[in-house]
């Protein structure tokens, strides 16, 4: 998988894409106008951190502390996860100006 996001990039959820809990089925969903993805707890934890201000590296560092896991492992997993969502146009990366 070719990464579509670099550590210094700032990821964000574009207008119309939102995190949603589906209480009927007890699942977590990333809802876009024409598609939806079911998330697990880790995926939801990652997307909750997307504030449009912090870089992926900053988010990875925080998750590494919270989950007490190696930063290298989390960096790879988060990069692949966000790349999959960028391909689906459900996560955007801020243009660095």
């Amino acid at each position: 998988m070719t990464p579509l996001i670099q550590p210094q990039d700032v990821p964000y959820l574009p207008r119309g894409v939102r995190l949603q809990g589906d209480h009927v089925r007890g699942i977590r969903v990333l809802q876009a106008p024409e598609r939806a993805m079911q998330l697990d707890q880790i995926g939801e934890a990652i997307l909750t951190e997307l504030d449009g201000a912090r870089s992926m590296a900053a988010i990875v560092a925080e998750l590494a502390v919270r989950y007490n896991a190696p930063e290298d492992q989390i960096a790879g997993d988060v990069r692949d996860f966000l790349t999959g969502l960028i391909e689906r146009r459900m996560v955007f990366v801020k243009d660095i100006t």
């Binding site: 024409e34 598609r35 939806a36 697990d40 988060v78 969502l85």
Partner: peptide, 14 residues
Amino acid sequence: MAWTKPTLTEIACG
């Protein structure tokens, strides 16, 4: 909880 590789599952709409 421990870190695991996050999964994404497409939900078929409609």
